[in-house]
Design a protein around this nucleic acid. Structure first.
Lengths: 120, 120
DNA sequence: AATAGTACCTTGCAATATATGGTACCTTGT
DNA sequence: ACAAGGTACCATATATTGCAAGGTACTATT
């Protein structure tokens, strides 16, 4: 199991894990435990986080799920992204990029003139 | 007053606004209303967010404050970053950069081998 | 006198990552 | 046979924090 330093700021992850899960599922169907492994390659995530998150995504209609047997342990619950989920993913990616750029500008004092960010 | 689209994901900001405030205060002393203006150039922030945040930073010893009269309205409460605050800022900047890079790798499927992210 | 901008503040709410603890399957070593 | 460890799922309670909504008060403009 891969791990990234668990000192990483918990708050930073708010909302981002949903984005990460949708991005993974847009590539291929995954089961929960697998996604924890994947995401853990890059940012720390606790197992206790993924299952409530997946449940929420399912309730919101962003994903569906199906069971599949496994040789290595109990049956796996695979998740598949829906069309609605794909739309949401696109929206979140765009928002994340805009946000990350905004933060970067603030941190490194680049006050670029962006379209539509001024009242008059 | 500058504004960025207020549709920006609220969750993304968790923890980041603290970082932004500390970065601003590391450049120069600022008062709350001023920081809202500055930050709003790049990411949406509500006025109702900054004052509880500043209060918390003060309680934690990351900043101190002093009053100064103004011609344009009521007295301004300026905030100054402490040595402890500067250390915290450095730590948060590093954590943010690591985090943002991790997310970027996940979004764009760059599974780089980074040092210390594998158990064996 | 009324309005708008500046500048501060408090309270309650909503969202979500995590810790903790639990169930159950399979393989390997003793 | 059985203990241990990895795989795989789940639920609950808690902490953190951004925001909306509402308030006070000063100054300048209409």
């Amino acid at each position: 199991m891969y791990t990234v330093s668990d000192t990483m700021n918990t708050q930073f992850k708010k909302g981002v894990l949903e984005l990460c899960v949708l991005v993974l599922l847009d590539r291929k169907d995954c089961y929960g435990y697998e996604m924890v492994e994947e995401i853990s390659r890059n940012i720390f995530i606790s197992e206790g986080t993924i299952y409530p998150l997946l449940k929420r995504l399912k309730t919101e209609g962003l994903v569906i799920s199906y069971l599949k047997e496994s040789q290595d342990g109990p049956p796996r619950k695979y998740y598949q992204i829906t069309e609605f989920g794909k739309e949401k993913k696109e929206k979140l990616v765009a928002e994340w990029n805009e946000f990350a750029m905004g933060v970067s500008n603030l941190l490194y004092n680049r006050n670029v003139d962006m379209e539509g960010n001024c009242d008059e």
